[in-house]
Simulated scan of single mutants.
Amino acid sequence: MRLLILGGTEFVGRALAEDALARGWEVTVFHRGRHPAPGGAGVLHGDRTAEGGLAALAHGEWDVVADTWSGAPRAVRDTARLLAGRAGRYAYVSTRSVHGEPVPAGAAEDAPVVESSPDAGDMPYPQAKRGGELAALDAFGDRALLLRAGVVLGPWENVGRLPWWLLRVARGGPVPVPEPRDAGLQYIDVRDLASWSLDAAARGLGGPYNLISRPRHTTMEGLFDACVRVTGSDAEPLWTPPGTFLSAGVEPWTGLPLWLPDGPVREGIYEGNAELAHAAGLRCRPVEETVADTWAWLRSVGGRAPLRDGLPGPGMGEETEARLLAAAGGAAGE
């Protein structure tokens, strides 16, 4: 199989490249040259946002194109149109957020989606991804595979969510963690996303698929315990009412990665429907494996997770945590 990855050097694109290379596929990555390409992959350079930036793609044929673009939809439009006659299938990495934020709890692939256009420039994330879907469908029709990912974790993560938890737990000591300890988490390991996506493209599947584990794949306690085990830390969870976090100025999701208090946003992110993909062979590895492999990768890059360009680092600062620990100690003892 000949695979062209538009990107291919970071997180999801990297996982796609590594998986395809392990299969013996012929892999070409098209990127701006800011990050090293995976060993064994052919390299084409270009900038999709620049005039003439697709020149390197003017020739060549591929069985599958994988596209992780999350910016202006017209970049997907231009690339997909250029490749439509020279590629078999177009796998576009989208998001469940195309259903609108907050995503309705239990939303399957046929739930309503936001309005957008393949010709649009910069837009909010849900509309941008939906515009990318429309661009892929416009150029490839039923040869377009729409990969609607949920929360993505695992090695090469350039968002910093799981790395933040690992690094904080590795420092040890009491760690404030929001109750309830059995709060469910639903996500997908980046390697499971990559493996299923390549299998699906090779099988000729098309249309939208939600790519995420089943609800309650793990819990806050399960995630924390896994982080303790793999880091060998003496960290102990200080289970704390959610209101204490909010009173201390901790922003859900950004100030404490992966945490959302009860409500529509949490339900939409952690109670999604992915039965269509599971019926088509999606398998999600246990949290212990995701955490252990992410820790091994994190240590291999010096314990500092690379962040996507322009993305602020997640997690609370030391002063906020100290304030929270003081408040949590009182709340936990009430």
Rank of each mutant, 00 (worst) to 15 (best):
L153N: 07
L198K: 09
G303R: 02
P306D: 00
P112N: 02
P155L: 13
R23N: 03
Q186F: 10
P312H: 05
R14C: 15
R77Q: 02
A15Y: 10
E318F: 08
G329K: 13
W69Y: 09
P180T: 13
R299H: 08
L3S: 06
G184I: 09
G88D: 00
P242S: 12
R168V: 06
R32Y: 11
K129S: 02
L311Y: 11
C227D: 01
V43L: 09
G315M: 07
G33R: 03
P124M: 13
A72G: 01
F224S: 00
F245Q: 10
Y125G: 08
V190L: 09
T219M: 00
P264L: 10
N210M: 05
A15V: 10
A135N: 01
L223F: 15
T95R: 04
A135F: 02
A108F: 00
G100I: 10
V152P: 06
M316C: 14
D138Q: 09
Q127R: 06
P261A: 11
A120S: 12
P215T: 06
W259I: 03
G160Y: 01
G184Y: 12
E61F: 00
S233A: 15
R89I: 07
P73V: 10
I269W: 12
G132M: 08
A200V: 14
A135E: 08
E101M: 11
E318I: 14
E51I: 12
I212V: 12
D293H: 11
V76E: 02
V29E: 00
V64D: 15
A149V: 01
A331P: 04
G71S: 11
A279K: 08
A22N: 08
E109Y: 13
G207S: 04
Y187V: 05
G263Q: 04
L311V: 14
G121M: 05
D309N: 11
V98N: 12
V287G: 14
C284Q: 11
D47N: 12
D199L: 14
G329P: 02
R130E: 14
G150M: 15
A194P: 01
L246F: 04
G33D: 08
D67K: 06
A108Q: 01
W165K: 00
M220W: 11
G317C: 03
L258R: 02
V159D: 15
V29Y: 01
L82C: 11
G302N: 14
D192L: 00
W164L: 11
G13L: 04
A327G: 04
D262H: 01
M220N: 06
Y90P: 08
W295V: 07
W239A: 06
V175S: 06
G46C: 08
A17P: 13
R77Y: 02
E101F: 13
E61N: 05
D67A: 10
P163L: 06
V98T: 09
G52I: 15
R2W: 10
I5C: 06
P312D: 04
N158Q: 12
E133D: 14
G333T: 11
G24H: 03
L6Y: 03
A91K: 05
G24C: 10
D182S: 12
E275D: 15
G132S: 04
P176H: 11
D225R: 13
R304A: 11
Q127V: 13
G33C: 07
V265N: 03
L298Q: 03
D47A: 12
V151F: 01
V287A: 09
D142Y: 03
Y187C: 02
W165L: 01
L238D: 01
D122E: 13
G302M: 05
L193S: 07
